[in-house]
Design a protein around this nucleic acid. Sequence first.
DNA 1: ACAACTAGTTTGTAATGCAAAACTGACTGC
DNA 2: GCAGTCAGTTTTGCATTACAAACTAGTTGT
Lengths: 112, 112
Amino acid sequence: MSEQTDQHPVNGLDDVVHQRVRLGILTVAHQARRVEFGFLRTTLGLTAGNLSQHLATLEKAGLIDIEKGYEGKRARTWLSLTPAGAQALRDEVIQLKRLIHQIEQGSSDPQP
Amino acid sequence: MSEQTDQHPVNGLDDVVHQRVRLGILTVAHQARRVEFGFLRTTLGLTAGNLSQHLATLEKAGLIDIEKGYEGKRARTWLSLTPAGAQALRDEVIQLKRLIHQIEQGSSDPQP
DNA sequence: ACAACTAGTTTGTAATGCAAAACTGACTGC
DNA sequence: GCAGTCAGTTTTGCATTACAAACTAGTTGT
């Protein structure tokens, strides 16, 4: 386990979280705590079908909760981060910072 | 063009660069300026086939150059960032920083 | 009551990502 | 000279993704 796997920051990134669109969804959800489907759709410039599937992926991974209800007579879908989702986003940020640090250092690791 | 497309940081990310493995390749290449295939392979924990295909993608996108030659009698492949590759990595970092900033703010954009 | 609209899901298709296996080409014994 | 390695490429098969188009369900207009 202390092999030389996973020493590089990108190996600490979870593909479910790192994927461009889902990273956007989690970011918006983190900022707002409860987001409308339609708001996400326009903010991120997605088709409804594409967004619907990404939400299913995130829900299945336990990173978001989905709530369905009505706003007046209009059907609405809201989503919010679960604690696991908030943690996953924090972890992603930690790894991204490590990565950015490495890029900006030019070279930090000594090479054997 | 001043529509509300692309205002979110994730919409400024290029999928060729943002992809986990390729981001790792570009980062290592940036640090070392000239990297051996085998070094990347072990550093990022990839199969040779997978790495070979990602390098082809990056080369086709003009982000890296690939050099083949010999080290003693042993065949070696090296790669290095092109100017476009270095720029693409800088752009990725800029967008990631914007994203991290948004996440850490809690909320920076006023919502209409 | 029926056409049109809103909000979102399901479905079908093409592209991408990955590991494993088969394949090259060049060197290394024996 | 021919079996075995080394360094990497190409092919194969499968899961995931992105997108559009068709579909469902409820709402509004006439």
